[in-house]
Write a protein that binds this DNA or RNA. Structure first.
Length: 470
RNA sequence: GGAGAGGUGGCAGAGUGGUCGAAUGUACCUGACUCGAAAUCAGGCGUAGGUGAAUAGCCUACCGUGGGUUCGAAUCCCACCCUCUCCGCCA
């Protein structure tokens, strides 16, 4: 459920297939990847050192863990020309600066500056050409770098797809029904509670209308989760934009690589995107900031709508509201110091588990293998809830540690207490939980033989004490 | 939508073509004075890249963003973004 959490396909970045989308920065008309870095930062996602000093090793690790083909030769060529151009440019700038200063001083003394001017003739054009060539090399490198996925943590099992994920634990026992279970669609359609046709009429496939008691139960779930995280888990409730600019999408890694998964709006010249998860809004809050070390970890939560184009999943989960273009989710985000981020990940998974436990929903906790993890993550746990109608566990939460991968794009830093120097923070995100899927799980697991649904005790305060909806 | 003002270092605030990466104040750090503190005095105090063993020097870039003029731009020109004030409209 995390942003850009679909598996990354092997990509040859040098091949004709890779064409960077024409992203426009929210604040200007130039490509976001250029503007954000001002071309003197390395707009990379991985530590630049990994692509310079340890390129071969990095390529091997990416291939082994992610099935990702890094074009070593192209990067090496670009990097060496970039480096040479950078040094030449600096030298030219140095020459221009010293000469110009001399001209200024000579003028101040009333001397003739003509010979000095002659000396500097042509320097400007040369410098301009150099700067342009340097910018081109940097953009090319950035385009490659922005498409490289994160390297998995050592504790992550190497594997190809979801079949290689590891079950860490299970909680609760699937209920044994003495009648034949109905799925959430059948349960919901009885009273017009859940209306896919109405959703299709208004918007199209993968949109749903909820009504009556079920709409209320849906609302109750969001309130319950938000209250739990803010009062018991120490999160700061945030209300954030769900329409964001390209810089934000690039900061958390949705752009440039996953544009086709996003809904977008265009008003005049300005293109904005609908968030696929509140991870985008919450994590971007620390973009271009330097946090104080003792303020970390930051724990942020928000209940928002999420929008996903679901491109490339046309045949999957077409029935009901498992996979929607629009859904609600309570998201947890933590901004942590490097030395604490993995402990924070364990804590955050616990927060998501606590929601399921309080609702009495059986689930299992999976450690994702390297090939099944999202683009930005170094380590991900998925929580999968039991769905009686499918006799299987389905993803309902995904909690990831991105370490400094997003932070590097975001320039989100923390001041080291000892050295006083800024260092990249680590960012974590997790669903706590996806509300639509939680609603499905509550309906199916708590159904009665007459089609009514028992409201979990934890939700009754949010349902005016109602114990059963029928 | 109309009219106007403005974006400079953590904050405040100078600077309208030439040693300006940027005065000054304030905050912060170090030292002196003090039993200690306050006050006072002296010094330091941005981020990033390159080159260094170096958290030393030296070089380069950064004054909302991008582009232009110029030997030289915080300063002049153009476009855009954002903020504020007034009017209109709107939940």
């Amino acid at each position: 459920m995390a942003g850009a959490s679909r598996p990354v396909e092997p990509t040859d970045v040098s091949g004709g297939g890779f064409s960077p989308p024409g992203i426009r920065c929210g604040n200007c008309r130039t490509a976001a990847i250029i503007s954000r870095s001002s071309l003197h930062l390395d707009p990379l996602m991985l530590d630049p050192a990994l692509l310079r000093s340890h390129l071969a090793d990095t390529a091997a690790r990416l291939r082994q863990t992610r099935g990702y083909a890094l074009d070593v030769a192209t990067i090496e060529a670009l990097e060496s020309s970039r480096k040479q151009l950078a040094m030449q440019t600096q030298e030219l700038q140095n020459r221009r600066n010293t000469r110009s200063r001399a001209i200024g001083q000579a003028k101040g003394r009333g001397e003739d500056v003509a010979p000095l001017l002659a000396e500097v003739a042509g320097l400007g054009d040369q410098l301009k050409a150099n700067e342009q060539a340097l910018a081109e090399a940097q953009v090319k490198l950035a385009q490659i770098a922005l498409g490289i996925p994160n390297l998995p943590h050592d504790s992550v099992p190497v594997g190809k797809d979801e079949a290689d994920n590891i079950e860490v634990s299970r909680w609760g026992r699937p209920r044994e029904f003495e009648f034949s279970v109905k799925d959430h669609v059948e349960l919901g359609e009885r009273h017009g509670w859940l209306d896919g046709d109405a959703g299709a009429k208004l918007s199209g496939a993968r949109f749903t209308v909820l009504r009556g008691q079920l709409a209320r139960l849906h609302r109750a779930l969001g309130q319950f989760m938000l209250d739990l995280h803010t009062t018991e888990h120490g999160y700061l409730e945030c209300n954030v934009p769900v329409v964001v600019n390209a810089d934000s999408m690039q900061g958390t890694g949705q752009l440039p690589k996953f544009e086709e998964d996003l809904f977008a709006t265009e008003v005049g010249e300005t293109k904005r995107y609908l968030i696929p998860t509140a991870e985008v809004s919450l994590t971007n809050l620390v973009r271009d900031t330097i946090q104080e070390a003792d303020a970390l970890p930051l724990r942020l939560t928000a209940l928002t709508l999420c929008f996903r184009a679901e491109a490339g999943s046309y045949g999957r989960d077409t029935r009901g509201m498992i996979r929607q273009h629009q859904f609600e989710k309570v998201e947890m985000v933590q901004i942590a110091r490097a030395d604490q981020s993995h402990a924070q990940l364990e804590e955050m998974v616990g927060h998501a588990e606590s929601v399921l436990q309080k609702l009495g929903l059986p689930y299992r906790k999976m450690l994702l293998c390297s090939g099944d993890m999202g683009f930005t993550a170094v380590k991900t746990y998925d929580l999968e809830v039991w769905l009686p109608s499918q006799q299987t566990y389905r993803e309902i939460s995904s909690c990831s540690n991105c370490e400094d991968f997003q932070a590097r794009r975001l320039q989100a830093r923390v001041r080291n207490l000892d050295s006083g120097k800024p260092e990249l923070v680590h960012t974590l995100n997790g669903s706590g939980l996806a509300i639509g899927r939680t609603l499905i799980a509550v309906m199916e697991n708590n159904q009665n033989v007459d089609g009514s649904i028992t409201v979990p005790a934890a939700l009754r305060p949010y349902m005016n004490g109602v114990e059963r909806i029928a």
